[in-house]
Design a protein around this nucleic acid. Sequence first.
DNA 1: GCCGTTTTCGGCCCGACTGTTTTCAGTCG
Length: 573
Amino acid sequence: MENSEVARILSEIGEFLAMEGESPFRIKAYEKAAETIGSLQEELADVYQKGGLRALEEIPGVGVSIAEKIEELLKTGHLKYYEKLKKKSPIDLSELSQIEGLGPKSIFKLYKKLGVANLKELEAAAKRGEIKKLEGFGEKSEENILKGIEFLKKSGGRFILGFTMPLIRGIEERLKQLRGVKKLVVGGSVRRRKETIGDVDILIVADKPKPIMDYFVSMPEVAHVYAHGEKKSAIKLKNGLDVDLRVVHEESYGSALNYFTGSKDHNVALRQIAIDKGYKLNEYGLFKGKKQIAGRTEEELYKALGLRYIEPELREMRGEIEASRENKLPDLIGYNDLRGDLQVQTSWTDGADSIEDMARAAMKAGLEYIVVTDHTKRLAMTKGLDAKRIVKQMKEIDEINKKFEAAGIKLKVLKGTECDILKDGSMDLPDEILSQLDVVGASVHSYFNLPKEEQTQRIIKAMRNPHVDMIMHPTGRLINKRPAYDLDMEKIINEAKNTGTILEIDAFPDRLDLKDDYIHECVKKEVKMAIDSDGHSINHFSVLEYGIAQARRGWCTKSDVLMLGRSRRCYPC
DNA sequence: GCCGTTTTCGGCCCGACTGTTTTCAGTCG
């Protein structure tokens, strides 16, 4: 059983317990264990094999009780305790808890009173007007539930790229190792690095595809086989993701890859160019009459169409074809170009690991500096820092830097904050504290539904604070969960230009905030951005990749992204 | 349920908003 599955079950146990009004600490214990396991680098099965129950208990947040449950899951694939809870209240929790504002207590009440166990039944009950009649619910709650369902439907069951990528890469690696696979690439929206993906298209070049196809449809992750042929097979994975595997000929590889990478509109435009030149373009190649003139590689294909090669992240019809023709494509920031991370949370607040551990992990991830940006006091639940504690934290950072220097470690830890922007646009820490920090990030965590103009002015006021260097996750959206707060982004971007404020590209997979369209606007207006992990544990630096992908989708070059100089002593902005 | 230690129990444990109420429950970050 995979870590993500164990994490899901533990987190559902937490929710079941919450429904029953269990002690909040017990619930929190399950949540915390689920979180840790979800971002664990090593497979639990390996941990268990190496060190048994004891090794499981070594995992932070896992004690005797949870370790035994994990053991049972690994050994039998089932957990009696979980099944008992589920039998008592057979509710599709993963579905219902996606609705913003609907927590375990409400879900339980809806089940008890109306028998609602899944999204469909919830929608039906809301439409029949039954929910507003329940005690504790009303007109507004029913309306919000319907709105939540609508929002969920719009996101259309798409998977968040960064959360799904480890699974896809695992499959990719195993397929690549099979005998007879000459080439393999994952195309589609995965290759374009869209923030969410609908399904996965894998292309291979192989002489004898049958054993490869046989393996593909019998992988342990497979829940259903739609098709199992020699040229194409299609499956549904246990997590609901559809994956297609196609075999293509070597001489068509480039054109097939192009075809299956999309976007559809980009492909249509390419086909039109081919027609204008008297050619025909399809997934088998570029043809003049019956003769194939290109298609073995994508580079060859674009060249034959009179274009420069266009990176997959740009193939969204945002002007890339014209830019390619005029040789004006941006020199995109590379996946290895990032040198530092300007948003890192630690165990001082809601992060899982100490400053030093985060710093060492950052170094392993190839970074040269991090900025420690713990939350501030308004976010009480995270133990947000007040003036006194942040001064203490600064001292610890000084000590770590000294220690690193003495040990010849190059990585620099900078002092920062993710300071709450209060309702009126003022900051949650006094100016005299902010002035002592290397990087001041500011962000909104409350009053999400102010009217557009008020919300915009609130952030503009923060940008005008001379100490504020950057606005973090500027629009506050959570992909598939919550829309951005109502903002006039044109005004925000213009103000960023005027005040020299950095706008963040928060790389966390369900944030990716700014989104690509806004990044593109910033690039056009020469507003600087920063790509940050928003990391809360030592494993989170890997998400920077998705921030870079998003930046590339927004046409970012290296110079659009803030990077601090190696020898520079601090104040970066 | 986990953790840590003054070693086997007590601490963990905030604060504000929303929508329902008329004093509070549920949710969220």
